[in-house]
Design a protein around this nucleic acid. Structure first.
Lengths: 202, 202
DNA sequence: GACCTAAGCGGACACTATGTCCGCTTGAGC
DNA sequence: GCTCAAGCGGACATAGTGTCCGCTTAGGTC
């Protein structure tokens, strides 16, 4: 829904999508969303998605080269929304100057846990393993956390940013939830982590 | 080399391995070690390993059901060695009572970074993605870190353990090293993390 | 040292997924 | 209604997985 997967370069005329193409795109996304939700995303094949969407393989590959790109398209709007809140939203997520870095990191963690809880299946489809680090979303979270670490006066904010993002890996979240850890305990642990790392020692 | 992949249950007679079987096992492990090192472990196929070892597919599958089991066999001894040091080695890694939990966690992090630096390729072959959490090694690290967190008086040591192990994910380490972060900065960041989280606030 | 037999071997096979190609169909501008 | 490029989709080539089963051989026995 919503966005073209190829970046819409402002300025270029954009030949406008044909009606059948638009209809098929919607079908694909709806079918993929459902399949990712109802079983392990890693086992969903391009063929499954094509069949479920009622279109041919060729048609599917025309727009999406692989499963990952479909999951990313589905995630896109959710990630944008969170990014928006981080940049321009209200405290403690947004950049009010009187909110401490530790509070903001805790708020970010909480928002990410919300997102993980709702969309783990998509995140597992899109940002699994090494692919996680190649997404624009990761680059954004990284910048944000590095900025907070810097504000807090951390020694090596650049490295710390990656270390502080690691506990948000979708596989870890899935593992924790699967063994019965409730999401509150995960948020709680992350909150503790945020305050421990970003509040300067007295 | 060394260990049988199937656990050697003390007591059972163990029909003793035939000479050709032993020779082939050695060949397989040597070939796999080399292949994992010289290219992305995810792209190494069972066929490649069989060919490189100079044996047939059937022979390879007889002993190892998949790539992961081979990588684990190769890692086994290194992981055991570290476990040994944690349980019975000298301070700060081992359990000397006057070493603080924070120091011990920092030492553990340092040891893990050493291991990652030497064996990322194997770790990427064996403990990638969700598979990481199913290994005996992970269970052991988890117990160790949870114990340290408990000693330090952490609120929810059980959850914290998983969060504190997340920055040691092989994919993350590879990503950091690939973008040029030297291992010292990674150890440094982890050390800071250890002291920040496990030293009680005054 | 010849014999026997189960452990070990390895190529062939069936199956599944991927990604591409190309002739046919159809939306939409004129 | 005509045109034609964008879009469609099934067939195909390729690659990897895991199993099966007839052949080979190590190593114990007499």
């Amino acid at each position: 829904m919503s966005r073209l997967p190829d970046l819409p370069l402002a300025g270029e005329p954009q030949p406008r999508e044909r009606a059948d193409a638009a209809r098929n795109r919607a079908r694909v996304l709806a079918a993929a969303e459902r399949l990712f939700a109802e079983r392990d995303p890693a086992t969903v094949t391009m063929d499954d998605i094509a069949k479920a969407a009622g279109i041919g393989r060729g048609t599917l590959y025309r727009r999406y080269p692989d499963r990952v790109s479909i999951a990313r398209a589905l995630l896109d709007e959710h990630e944008r929304a969170l990014q928006e809140k981080l940049m321009r939203g209200p405290a403690p997520l947004g950049p009010e100057p009187e909110t401490s870095p530790a509070e903001r990191l805790a708020a970010f963690y909480a928002a990410m846990v919300d997102m993980l809880e709702t969309h783990v299946h998509l995140l597992l489809g899109a940002e699994t393993g090494a692919a996680r680090y190649t997404t624009g979303a990761y680059a954004f979270w990284r910048l944000h956390v590095r900025h907070l670490a810097q504000q807090a006066g951390a020694e090596d904010a650049d490295t710390l940013a990656d270390l502080l993002l690691a506990p948000l890996a979708p596989e870890l979240y899935r593992y924790q939830r699967d063994k019965g850890t409730p999401m509150e305990r995960i948020s709680g642990g992350l909150e503790a982590l945020a305050y421990a790392t970003l509040i300067p020692r007295s």
